[in-house]
Every structure is written in C-alpha cells, then in structure tokens.
Design a binder for these strands. Structure first.
Length: 864
RNA sequence: GCGAAAGUGGCGGAACUGGUAGACGCGCUGGGUUUAGGUCCCAGUGGGGUUAGUCCCCCGUGCGAGUUCGAGUCUCGCCUUUCGCACCA
C-alpha cells in the first residue's frame, strides 16, 4: 500500500472499476425492491455549479446507501436543455443556441463523471432532443383533443423599443434591460393548460404526502388558494344598463362597500375613456410597468373615477366606479367591490382619495372599533352591524343568509374560487419546444397529427435576439391544414421549459420507448426520493404533480403522485467582495483574487485585491452568483483536493435543508480527515496478518471502543437512512476515528478490533467518499468492491452497558453527577442523588418539595 | 405587499420525543517533530469572576413576554435574514 494518499489516482481507478463492471446500470428486477432516487436535472449553463454538486452529492449518498440496503437503485441524470440563457449566449457570442447547449452538456457530463456519481448514463435524457420533445408534443395534442388545452389572451411584458416580449427577469425597475424603455403590459393570445380542473385534487392529495416537507405543502396550499365566496352583480346606474360582476369571500361586509374598482382593460373603463381624454391618458399610464404580482402589490395605489355609478344590490345605495392600477383583467372578473372598513388595500385607496369608509361588521363582544383610522379585518368573533335585515349575525350566518338572498333574487351565486390560474405554456421564444399546432383560416387551431410529429426546431439558425427565427422563416411557418388541406401556418410560439421538466422523471424509466412511456414506467414510479432546491417549492413541484395526474388520466401511469418523498436542499452561499470605482461603477472581485486580513478572532478586518492592493468591501454571506463573481468552481476544488473531499465537505458543512456557507478552510479540514483515515489504514495493514476478531478477549478500553463502534453504526444508519443529517453522520464517524486513534493496540484482540472498526468506517463512508472506500476496502484485505457490500450490522450485545451517568439538578440547575446501575430503581436513584455531597450543599436551608426522576437521564430536585 | 422558512461561541454547525447547551470541524493560542516552510502530532479554547489547586460560582441560544419541576426546543408579539410570487431555471 502506498504511504501517500493520492486522490487523483484512487479516483481514476475506482471510476474505471465502476465503468467496466457497469455497476450503476440497472434494469427492472422482480426479485429486489426498487428504489428510484431522482435529483432535479440541471440547466446546462456551461459549468457545474456548487449548488448542483450539493444536490447531486445528496442524491448519490442516498442512492449508494439504499444500494447497500439491498435495493435495486435507479439514479438517472439528464439536461433541462431549453431556455433563455442559450439565447442570451447566442446574442453575446454569435453562436447558435443549439451548438452552445450541446458543448455545455458535453463539458458538464464530464464534470459530473469526475465527481463519481453513480448514474445510469444509458438513461440520459436531453430535453432539446426531438427524441424527447416529440412525446411532449404528442401529449399536448392529446390534451387538446380532451379539451384540457385552450387559447386565451393574457398579459405579457412588452418592450416598445425592441418590439419584443420580455421575461420578468429582463425587466429591471419597470424598464427593458437592453432598451431601457418603460415596459408596457400587452395582451396576446396564448395557450393554456387547465390546471384549475385539477386544483381540488392537487390540494387534497397534499394530505397523502407525509414524505414531503410541511413548508412545501403549506406553500402549495396557499398558492392554490381555494376560497369559498359569492359572485354577484352590481347593476350599473347609467341608461345603458349592464352590471359589474365581482367575486368576494366576504359577503358579510357588502353593506360596507363604498366604491368599486375595475382594471384598466375592463370594458366599462374603456367605454368611459372614449369620451374622456384625461381618463384615456390615465389608462395608458397605468398599463405601464411590470406584470409580476410583486410589482403590482408594491405599486403606489392609483385610481381615477370613471364618472359611472353602480348600485349596491343589498342597500340600493349608489356608489362610484373607479379604475385602479392594482386591479388586473384576467385575475378574477377584473372588477372588485371595495370595503375599505375591512380590507387593508381598499382602506389605503379610500384614505388616499377621500372615499367614504363605512363599518359593516364589528367585534362580537360589542367593543367599539374605529375603522376610519385603520381597517378592522378580523373574520372570527364578528357580528354584522348596520346591515339592514342581516344585522346581528356572525360570519357563517351572515355569509349564508346573504348568499341565499342573492341566489334567490338571481343576482349572484356561491362559488369556489382558486388563486391558482391556468398554466400559460406559450413563450414567444426560439429556443424551446415548438407548440404542435397549425392555424388554419377556415378550421381554426388544429393539432399536428401524430404521424407528422415531431415538429422539429431548426437548429442551424442565426439568432439576433430581435425576433424568433421561427417567426421570420416563411418555409418553416408554412403548413397544410391537417383538417382541410388548405394553406395554413404553424404556431411559432414554443413551450414554457417547465413543460419539459414536468415529465422527464418518467421518461428516464424508459428512455428508448417508442411511445410517451411504456410499462417500465410503472415499475419504477413513483419516485422514492426526489431532491432539489427549495426555490422550486411551488411552481415546478406543482406542475410536476399536475403532469403526473394528466399522464395518469391518459393511462400512462398508474400512481396518483409522482414522488413519495421530497428533500429540499438549501442554497450555497459564499463571501463576496467589491469595489466602487468612479469610472466603472461597482466591480465584483473573485474571492480567489482577494487577500483577507483577519483579526485575532478570525473576523475579516481588511480585504484587498491581490493584483494591485486596492481596498475592497466584503459583503458577508450571500448567494453564489455570476453577477457577484463569487462562484466557487467545483472543478478546481476537485483538482486540488479530489472529488471525495469535495463530497465530504459539502455533506459535512451543514444539514442538507439549510443554507451552506462555503469556506475553503473547511475543505482543508475534510481533506485532513481523509488523509488521517488513509494513514490509519496504512499503519494498520503494514503490521501484517490480522487475527480474527475476538470480542471476548478485549479489555475495558476495547469493550468501550467496540460499544462506540456499534453505537456509531446504528447512529450513522439512522442519520443517513432516515434523518438525512449527513453532517451528524460524518461527525459520528470522525469521533469513532478519533477514539480509534487513541486506542492502544498491543494485543491480537486489539488488532482484530481495529480491523473491525476500520472495515465498518470504510463501509459507512462508502456513500459519501466512494473512491477512498473502494481503495481502502481492498487494502484491508477484503474481496469484492466496497460499493457492492451490505451496510454493516449492529451487534446488539456490544451495546450493553452496566452503569450509566445521571445528572442531578437542583431547581433545574446542574449540581452533580452520579453513576448508577443501568437498571437501578427510582428510589435508589433518588437516594443517591440526595446523598451527593455537592447536591446537599445547594439544599442547605431549603425544603425539598418534589424530586423528579427521569430514568437513564436525570434527577431534578425541586426545593424552596 | 403577500406566502414560507431560519436566527445557538471568532466561524460552519450539534443538542432527534421539553431533560447535561456548544458534539464534530474550521480558526486561534501554546508546545513538539522537521534543515526551513508546509504536512503531521499533543494540549487549550463561550463570556465574566474566583481558587494553592485539576475546586467552584454567575451569565449565556436575535429581542420581549408566557407555559413548565425544567425551554435552544412549546405559545404569543416584535426585529433581522433568506426563498417564492406564475416568462430565470
């Protein structure tokens, strides 16, 4: 055995072994329980990111652990290859998005392989390949035929200078990122999938997912936002008649409605603006700005009266109709009834424009509230006041009485509403999956027949960024109508990339199927463990669940949910450094180019740039990102320390669901531990033939070490297999190694024990540092490969302990420790605790009132 | 603005079911090995006080209240940070 630990050499040998033995290639096996471990597939941005290393190391640790439990493990990998960054790269460097993407995939695949992840590469899925997206096109046309897909108008960010639709991230402070022009909201026709048809099922089945984090389930519940309310008409008071339809969850507050507000695109607002130029200008003004909910909510509330009045259907009162910038057409009915006394946003608006605020409900205990100063929004413990015949009712009673009344008079009905909106899947972009529809002047929108799929995206194009090459290519656009054969046009929009990532996990099961999926899908599904970033808690994970149900209803899969367990890992943070220069604004300096001076306690005192000594400002911990130039390159760390060290550190630094603060010094600590273990094994095997373990011949120190070994096996199995706290598993292994290092090996029995400990350590580390374990397993003289060994078994007889230490508290404060037989009776424990000299000191002049004995843990003496 | 989480030494974190706060690692301090540097090994390391001593005391888990024999852990309010908000993925 070489004295020096050489990670590069060890890693090459181990990876070569797994390759030639086809260790990670899996097929369906009826004799072994299956285990499907899935990590979210990466966008091929060019370089592997630290957050991906973290994600995939977690997945690989779980996969390798399950393999050691005897499971038939499927762990696939692929590429979420469509998306905006490829278009941006194309604009910046003048390369085609396809070529750029394929090069990135090749580079990143090699980076993943160097990390030693146990993927079955034969199942690799690349979403921009026609072999993949043709099946999603087929699925879409089938959904269209089932009526689950429709076309409707919706709002996009429109850049009036570049004449293009902008993504939300391309809107900076309400302006286009490149043109700088104020963004306008524009309505265009787009394709939608009816996710709201599945809203109830998506909501209710969250209760059947005990393996999903509560935080994610709560966020999804809130996102779906089911509410019970009433939809009703407020008749308009002008001669033309008509009515404003609104939805409210608070019909009990109807008597407090003092004005109405409509969206700028509402027909009533447009009609009113025709004869009012000032109003028309205002409508144009409030149509500007970004479309995100966040931007709308943070907006300064603005409005203008339309000169139109509506009639409160309960009180008969005439109230003014306003147009307001925070009401949007397409969200609900595009109109709201405003009850400023009981809604914060309505209150802010009413106060600003001097509109009346009238109380409709109040506390049931009769306490007076002043709604002029601030709204009273409670829904519990309320009673209606000044509400005509409905006065004096609590919330459920008022809700029902008013809803019955409205329904009886035919001006409204009860309605269940969702905050969730149907999924708009159209994108006005080139680098995406073409939407397989043909627009015929006579037949309308017609799906492309299955025999003509896939609708292939042309890959050799020049991409300028102004318009999609699909829209400017008349040959590509031209098509015969599948229905009437007449001249027609292809849809030039492409799919939201969330469509590809909604079903890739199922395609991994049968990547070569000549259909969307085949029978193999149900062998592997549902996914046993899904792992990905918390940032996907709502959108991706909801579409992922939704698409699974769509596939179920198409008869493609049998299960209701795609994944039984979900682990959301935290972000990866790093320190960032910048300097503000007069000429060039803020400049971010890579941490590798920064010289840091720390004070005696390790805090950063001063940071300077290595090249010129320029003074820099440190930001503290922040997300690793390109814009801050603080990304740690995993590959250079692998070059310096080896893949095992990088894997060990990312698992050790924090529990997986917490943010990980990246520190190079910590990486060195991980490397040091592996070197120490290597030399422990080296020293051990250089002593020659190892005798068989003989537990009975061990002295007290040996018995203690052996107990610690088996405690550790139990703890690590629980930490890795159930708790997913890899950091504590590693800490326990380190403790065991420290104990082994202190253990004096003078006898044959002791050498045998050392062999037993080292073998267990090597196997327990196999999921985390598989290359080193592969090497050391052989060095310890064992046959076979570490990756194929079963998880070590706890020897219950080694855990037995005759004596335990108990803590004695007086009034909750630690005052003494006593050693007792493990099975001592409560009375004996109480006596021993009270007899302890140190405890007695604190009981002088006090009367003992109670003694609490917690067996195996502590005694608390309550005295006063 | 709305929704969801998280705050523990100089730093990352541990304490799993309400029961010894600070495991493990980094950093730092002192010592040793080495021609030197690095590596490696040993010891110490929450803050304050105290002792001849290896004894002992007080304080301490973002802030403020509460429940309990006992709270980092449970409840309420506040502050700060992070994630998401439908065209970034």
């Amino acid at each position: 055995m070489e004295k020096q630990f050489d990670p590069a050499r060890i890693e090459t040998i181990a990876q070569g072994y797994w390759d030639s033995a086809e260790t990670f290639r899996v097929t369906e096996d009826p004799d072994r329980p299956k285990y499907y471990c899935l990590s979210m597939l990466p966008y091929p941005s060019g370089k592997l990111h630290m957050k991906e290393v973290r994600n995939y190391t977690i997945g690989d640790v779980i996969s390798r652990f399950q393999r050691m439990q005897g499971k038939n493990v499927l762990q696939p990998m692929g590429w979420d290859a469509f998306g905006l960054p490829a278009e941006n790269a194309a604009i910046k460097r003048g390369v085609a998005p396809a070529g750029w993407t394929y090069e990135n995939i090749a580079h990143m695949r090699r980076q993943l392989q160097r990390m030693g992840y146990g993927y079955d590469w034969q199942r690799e899925v690349t979403t921009c390949s026609p072999d993949y997206y043709r099946w999603e096109q087929l699925m879409f046309t089938e959904l269209f035929r089932k009526g689950l897909v429709y076309r409707a108008k919706s709002i996009v960010n429109w850049d009036p200078i570049d004449q293009t639709v902008l993504a939300n991230e391309q809107v900076v402070d309400g302006r286009g990122w490149r043109s700088g022009a104020p963004v306008e909201r524009r309505e265009i026709p787009q394709w939608f999938v009816r996710i709201t048809d599945y809203a109830d099922e998506l909501l209710e089945e969250l209760d059947q997912l005990p393996g999903w984090p509560d935080a994610v389930k709560t966020m999804q519940r809130n996102w779906i936002g089911r509410s019970e309310g009433v939809e009703l008409d407020f008749p308009l008071a002008d001669e033309a008649g008509g009515a404003l339809r609104v939805y409210t969850t608070r019909p009990d507050t109807l008597y407090g409605a003092t004005y109405m507000a409509v969206a700028a695109d509402h027909p009533v607002a447009i009609a009113a603006a025709e004869k009012n130029p000032e109003l028309a200008a205002f409508l144009t003004e409030i149509r500007q700005g970004a479309v995100t909910e966040e931007a709308l909510e943070k907006l300064e509330k603005k409005g203008m009266p339309l000169g139109v009045e509506a009639i409160n259907p309960l009180s008969g009162e005439r109230i003014p109709v306003w147009v307001a910038n925070f009401v949007l057409m397409g969200y609900g009915t595009g109109a709201i009834m405003a009850v400023p006394a009981h809604d914060a946003r309505d209150h802010e608006f009413a106060t600003r424009y001097g509109l009346p605020i009238r109380q409709a409900v109040g506390p049931a205990d009769g306490r007076a509230v002043d709604v002029q100063g601030e709204p009273w929004v409670a829904k519990d413990g309320l009673v209606t006041v000044a509400a005509g015949e409905f006065t004096g009712l609590d919330f459920p009673a008022a809700f029902n009485a008013i809803a019955d009344h409205l329904e009886a008079r035919g001006i409204g009905e009860r309605r269940t509403n969702y905050r969730l909106r149907d999924w708009g899947v159209s994108r006005q972009r080139y680098w995406g999956c073409p939407i397989p529809m043909i627009h015929c002047p006579d037949c309308g929108a017609v799906p492309v027949p299955e025999a003509e799929l896939p609708v292939t995206l042309p890959e050799s194009v020049t991409f300028s960024g102004v318009q999609s090459p699909l829209k400017t290519d008349p040959d590509w656009r031209r098509a015969a109508c599948p229905q009437c054969g007449g001249e027609a046009e292809r849809e030039t929009d492409t799919f939201d990339t969330f469509v590809e990532s909604s079903w890739y996990y199922a395609r991994y099961c049968c990547p070569d199927a000549e259909a969307i999926l085949d029978r193999r899908a149900d062998h592997w599904l549902p996914v046993d463990q899904y792992i990905g970033g918390i940032e996907h808690a709502v959108m991706h994970l909801l579409y992922f669940r939704f698409w699974h149900k769509l596939m179920r209803d198409q008869g493609l899969v049998a299960s209701d949910e795609p994944a039984t367990n979900l682990l959301c890992q935290g972000m990866v943070l790093a320190e960032a450094f910048y300097r503000d220069s007069e000429e060039g604004g803020r400049e971010w300096i890579a941490p590798a180019d920064v010289k840091i001076e720390r004070d005696g306690r390790g805090r950063i005192m001063r940071a300077t740039r290595c090249s010129d000594g320029a003074e820099l400002t440190a930001t503290g911990w922040t997300t690793m990102s390109k814009s801050k130039n603080n990304g740690e390159d995993p590959e250079s760390l692998v070059d310096r320390f080896g893949a095992d060290t990088v894997r060990l550190f990312t698992m050790f630094a924090a529990p997986p669901d917490q943010a990980l603060e990246w520190q190079d010094s910590g990486v060195e600590g991980a490397s040091r531990f592996l070197r120490r273990l290597y030399s422990l094994v080296h020293d051990h095997v250089s002593g020659g033939q190892v005798p068989a373990p003989a537990a009975a011949e061990l002295d007290e120190a040996g018995t203690d070490l052996r107990r610690k070994l088996h405690q550790t096996i139990g703890k690590v199995g629980d930490d890795v297999g159930r708790r997913y706290t890899f950091n504590t598993a590693i800490a326990a292994i380190m403790e065991l190694c420290n104990a082994l290092g202190r253990y004096d090996v003078a006898t044959d029995a002791a050498r045998g024990l050392r062999q037993e400990v080292l073998e267990a350590v090597v196997l327990m580390l196999q999921p985390i540092t598989p290359h080193l374990s592969h090497a050391l397993w052989t060095r310890l003289g064992r046959d076979g490969a570490a990756v194929d060994q079963p998880w070590p078994v706890v020897d219950e007889s080694a855990l037995v302990q005759d004596e335990v230490e108990l803590v004695v508290q007086v009034n909750g404060k630690l005052r003494g420790r006593i050693r007792m037989a493990a099975d001592a009776a409560e009375d004996t424990i109480r006596e021993a605790a009270l007899a302890d000299a140190h405890v007695q000191r604190f009981l002088e002049d006090l009367t003992i009132r109670r003694v609490i004995v917690v067996p195996g843990r502590l005694v608390n003496v309550v005295a006063g």
